[in-house]
Simulated scan of single mutants.
Amino acid sequence: MPNMPSSRDQVLIEINELLSKHGFDTSNIYDRSCFDLVARRELLLLLMKVLVNVDGFSPAHAHEIKRVSKIFLASPLLIGLKSKNEILEEDVVYERHGIPVIAPTTLHNIVVEEIYPEIFADRGGYYVQIDGQVVKEIREQQNLSLKDLADQAHVSRETIYKYETGRVRAQPDTAFLLESILNMKITLSVNLFQTPQQENSTETKEGEPRELVDLGFGVINTNRTPFDALAQPETKISKKTEPLITDLEKNRNQKVLERMATNLKDLSDVIGTDSVFIMEKKKIIESIDGIPVVHNWEIEEMKSPAEFLKMLAERRECN
């Protein structure tokens, strides 16, 4: 990405091409969602939102993408060109509402060159995280006291102690000076690909459809995604029980349901999980364009999530 793209659509196209060329499976682009693109390479699953101005990223979208990322053990990432009137700098990590933010060139450097950013922007300027254990080990190997190293780095003895114990971050110039003095790399890369921390919440017991909740599924309804809900058994059935991507009938006509089925198949393939329609109609429909269908009245007759998953597997195999 040598030249900066000028529009959001262009950025999305270039990111999709970049990831596809370097071993990622990528989804379709979803414009009216908390994420625009999903990409997977081996164990790394990315949920990405792309904006020209990252200040347009709302707290509501941040909350939703965090919820979805937690369920799928994915890493949310915001790609942007600028903040207010300032261009986002290459190899610097920013943050909006708890979501890491990078420029397209930074993503390019990570994917193509495996160069991970070490500098992050925060109130007051730019900072790096120092590997305090390395600093202490090298300092002691060189028979330097805390004061000796502090004097050479033009900081206080207390500051060096805080670096070594991980209590403070450093400004880049100070960190680079320390690296020159110790003749050793001491800065840490920013961990961009974290899964949001789980929070204590009862929201997974309050979703729809109620039939799944009553059967023993945790259900999270979503408002800004290409699907209606995520469902997962509250008790583990097997070693690997993935969340289900779920769409509800909601009096939608056949064309809308078929369009939603396309989205479900696309996302299921990239994320590596199953998807299902929950229907209210009495007429038996076993699938919509290859996506299994289970009816509310069928769920009411079941006794456990295992029965539901067994029916889902049988209807998937029939397609």
Results as ranks from 00 to 15, higher is better:
residue 134 V to C: 03
residue 43 L to H: 14
residue 277 F to R: 12
residue 136 K to R: 12
residue 67 R to Y: 03
residue 95 E to A: 14
residue 191 N to I: 07
residue 234 E to F: 05
residue 170 A to M: 10
residue 188 L to W: 03
residue 276 V to W: 05
residue 235 T to N: 03
residue 103 A to E: 06
residue 44 L to E: 08
residue 20 S to Y: 06
residue 189 S to Y: 02
residue 95 E to I: 00
residue 248 L to Q: 02
residue 115 I to W: 00
residue 142 Q to F: 05
residue 154 H to S: 09
residue 130 I to A: 12
residue 110 I to T: 04
residue 14 E to N: 05
residue 33 S to I: 03
residue 151 D to P: 06
residue 57 F to N: 08
residue 109 N to Q: 14
residue 111 V to F: 13
residue 183 N to A: 15
residue 106 T to E: 09
residue 138 I to W: 07
residue 87 I to E: 10
residue 10 Q to I: 10
residue 300 E to W: 00
residue 66 K to I: 09
residue 212 L to C: 09
residue 193 F to L: 02
residue 183 N to W: 07
residue 227 F to C: 01
residue 286 E to I: 11
residue 89 E to R: 14
residue 213 V to H: 10
residue 187 T to R: 15
residue 139 R to N: 13
residue 207 G to R: 05
residue 106 T to G: 04
residue 58 S to K: 10
residue 177 L to G: 01
residue 244 L to Q: 08
residue 44 L to F: 02
residue 289 D to Y: 03
residue 306 A to K: 15
residue 237 I to L: 11
residue 303 K to D: 02
residue 22 H to W: 12
residue 196 P to N: 00
residue 247 D to P: 04
residue 264 L to W: 13
residue 112 V to S: 06
residue 316 R to P: 03
residue 246 T to M: 04
residue 76 P to I: 02
residue 143 N to D: 06
residue 311 M to F: 09
residue 43 L to P: 11
residue 14 E to T: 00
residue 108 H to V: 04
residue 97 H to G: 04
residue 280 E to P: 02
residue 230 L to S: 04
residue 109 N to T: 08
residue 98 G to M: 04
residue 242 E to A: 09
residue 9 D to A: 14
residue 318 C to G: 10
residue 224 R to C: 02
residue 165 T to I: 07
residue 136 K to P: 00
residue 277 F to S: 07
residue 128 V to D: 09
residue 114 E to P: 05
residue 192 L to F: 05
residue 137 E to C: 01
residue 52 V to W: 10
residue 65 I to A: 04
residue 249 E to F: 00
residue 264 L to Y: 13
residue 232 Q to C: 01
residue 224 R to F: 07
residue 183 N to T: 08
residue 318 C to P: 01
residue 110 I to G: 05
residue 16 N to E: 04
residue 297 W to N: 06
residue 177 L to R: 14
residue 220 I to K: 15
residue 65 I to C: 04
residue 38 V to E: 00
residue 284 I to Q: 08
residue 191 N to Y: 09
residue 241 T to G: 02
residue 51 L to F: 12
residue 132 G to M: 13
residue 142 Q to P: 05
residue 40 R to K: 14
residue 272 G to K: 15
residue 15 I to L: 15
